[in-house]
Design a protein around this nucleic acid. Structure first.
Lengths: 184, 184
DNA sequence: CGACTATACGGAGACTGTCTCCGGTTAGGC
DNA sequence: GCCTAACCGGAGACAGTCTCCGTATAGTCG
């Protein structure tokens, strides 16, 4: 990639991050181009669709969640604590930009979406955490990691669209938690 | 209301129902006006915002859910069956139009939305069902009806945006169910 | 260093959807 | 049959998306 192209790409990404934070993931793309000081054509050449841009903006985001899952698995906390921790971090991470949770939800089963791959990473991270808990015999037998993933994304989405404070997702996550743990 | 106004209102509602079914709750409003055979001005006079139109289209929809809740309460089925039934009907009803579940979610905590009142009805219906189950001592103590409502809406929204078949919401609802019922 | 070319830029403008405004029409009471 | 308050319609202003193509320039090679 040519040096000027790389420069512009970075400028667009910076502008997009700022705009997404201020106005949510649905804000005007032309405005992002303007803020980045480039033409609309340049933005669309680098990121053909809004999802491509969101995907690029969230590059390190998936990595953060991945790292969270690793930390939780290695922490060796009791299952209940570990999962509470994991779910809360997940919802928090997914909620950085308004509308991001919804984007994620709809990309989860849509292989054509640029965000799809990112979702795979999340699904894998979640499966890893769940497996580590399952290994301790704490999980109900018929719990499927994918379903849990969907459910928690749903919670994130509700929290996002109802503008709930992050901690208000807690009670919902608690219900999910009881639903997947073996009754003691 | 003048007779012609009433006529146009009905035509718009019919057209909207058809359009929402075909293209989802986000389809073009001008197109609905065209299909109804009226000018855009007429549509916007009757329904100033998209949400007003959605609200009007779903008039009998809230009543249906209300009726469902009544039926479930009166059926005197065992708690587990009753709730499964209720949740499934709920998700099914909310999912009639693509995007409707998301609209509902964001209106639930937004008193300014025209759909807000409809949400109140749903919240009340849900509380009624939950209370009837609670009366049988089947519910965990700390379960809040509002949280359950949000959670189930979240499931509906996931099912909608991932284009899941209605029955694919089942496993998620099962988890929620276990999460709110007392372990036996 | 200067010339050449592949690569990238930018913004005018086509297109789509939202929503308003107001001149023209009509229902329904008298 | 007349009058007027209520209503209609669609042109057009506005905003956002996305493309196209003439222009500019980074990087290479002699």
């Amino acid at each position: 990639m040519r040096a000027d192209a790389q420069r512009n790409r970075d400028k667009i990404l910076d502008a997009a991050r700022a705009a997404f934070r201020e106005r949510g993931a649905g804000c005007s793309l032309d405005e992002i181009a303007k803020r980045a000081g480039v033409g609309a054509g340049t933005l669309y050449r680098h990121f053909p669709t809004r999802d491509d841009l969101i995907d690029a903006v969230m590059r390190n985001w998936a990595e953060r969640i991945e790292a969270d899952s690793q930390a939780v698995v290695e922490s060796d906390l009791p299952p209940r604590t570990a999962l509470t921790d994991w779910f809360n971090r997940f919802v928090e991470n997914v909620g950085i930009y308004q509308g991001a949770a919804a984007k994620l939800m709809s990309a989860m089963d849509d292989p054509k979406s640029p965000i799809y791959r990112k979702c795979q990473v999340l699904v894998a991270a979640n499966a890893k955490v769940l497996d580590s808990v399952r290994a301790k015999g704490a999980l109900r037998d018929d719990v499927d990691a994918r379903e849990v993933m969907r459910l928690v994304s749903g919670v994130a989405s509700v929290a996002d669209s109802s503008r709930l404070a992050p901690d208000q997702a807690g009670p919902m996550l608690a219900i999910v938690l009881e639903g997947i743990l073996k009754p003691e």
